[in-house]
Simulated assay, not measured.
Amino acid sequence: MAPGEECSVLVHEAPCLAPPHNNISTVLLVIAMQAEALPLVEALKLSQDDTLVFPKSVPWIKYSGIHDGLHIHIVVPGKDAVLGVDNVGTVSGALVSYAAIQALQPDLLINAGTAGGFKAKGACVGDVFVATEVAYHDRRIPIPIFDKYGVGATKTIPTPKLVEALGLKLGKLSTGNSLDMSPQDEEVIKSNDATIKDMEGAAVAYVANLFSVPAILIKSVTDIIDGGRPTTEEFLENLSMAADALLKTGICVLKFLNGKSIADL
């Protein structure tokens, strides 16, 4: 979906074949940065929920509400207590996902956020991708079998009807804990055949798989990694625009989910 496009969901009116009790009711969105999450929180009119679902000592925040018949929870890892920056990366993403799944028992988890994209793989700034597979590029363990474990390539649940209805792009996602890309990272990312690169997706998907919770990873492109510009500069310049594209897509995704089961995606 291109930035600025109106939400136009092409939904056939045929009855859902799945039993009613299989319909998606509770959706958990895990979002790494406040700047990515707050526009969606405001658009959905969610409220910060201070009910004790997380330990008192953690900075994690939960926003909750009902929209289009769905119980929606957005969780973010919050800010670092010392430096005041967003708790980005795989550790925070995995921890908050683990705690939220345990507390909220969602039918579906959506990891929504921003990512870098590769021009050579067809990515443009503002594009929104659904990840077809996730892997790591910074867990290098050069020992037989452990090397495959380190990459951790895992397919995500198929969502062909959702992708077609919203006109989203598909691509493989590679995750690592650095915003930049070392030569070693680049080599693994290429071997992962990745189109997009982020800092938490594979970790969130790993936790979802542990609990057999279906997960969709939706990523809006902030910067073109192979475009010749410094990643940090382009990321900061385009974060607001990418967050807006993520907002529009997120609302359309939730609209599409209403009354459907996982099999209908």
Rank of each mutant, 00 (worst) to 15 (best):
R229E: 14
D226C: 08
S47W: 02
L52R: 14
K79D: 08
V88K: 05
C16N: 08
V188M: 12
Y63T: 06
F146I: 07
T232C: 03
V221R: 07
D80C: 13
I216V: 15
G89F: 14
L108S: 09
G93C: 11
K190N: 13
K121Y: 08
S64K: 12
M1D: 06
Y63S: 09
T90L: 08
N177P: 03
V130P: 00
I196N: 05
V91K: 13
I224E: 06
I66N: 12
P77L: 12
P3V: 09
A18I: 00
K155D: 12
L70A: 08
A208W: 02
T231R: 10
L52Q: 14
V207S: 05
T154M: 12
L83F: 15
G126F: 08
L109I: 15
E237Y: 06
L170K: 14
T222C: 15
S191Y: 10
A94V: 12
D198P: 07
D127C: 06
E237M: 08
F54Y: 15
G152K: 00
H21P: 05
A208R: 01
V213C: 11
P59S: 11
G250Y: 01
D180R: 10
L257N: 00
V213I: 15
G69C: 02
E5D: 12
L44H: 05
S97W: 06
S174G: 02
D147F: 03
G84V: 10
H21C: 04
L44E: 02
W60E: 06
F211K: 05
S212W: 03
K197G: 05
P106N: 04
A131T: 01
K155I: 02
L247P: 01
L246G: 07
D244N: 13
A115W: 01
K56V: 15
L95H: 04
I31Y: 01
P230K: 10
L17M: 11
Q184N: 12
E5Q: 13
A242G: 01
K161S: 14
T232M: 10
M241D: 09
A131L: 00
S261W: 06
K248N: 12
V27D: 06
Y98F: 14
Q184P: 02
A205G: 04
I189C: 12
K169I: 03
G84D: 05
G250D: 06
L173E: 10
V27R: 09
V204K: 09
E133T: 13
R139L: 15
T159N: 00
G250F: 05
E233I: 11
P106G: 03
T231A: 11
I24M: 05
L179V: 15
L257Q: 01
L265N: 01
E200K: 07
S182P: 05
T249S: 11
P77C: 11
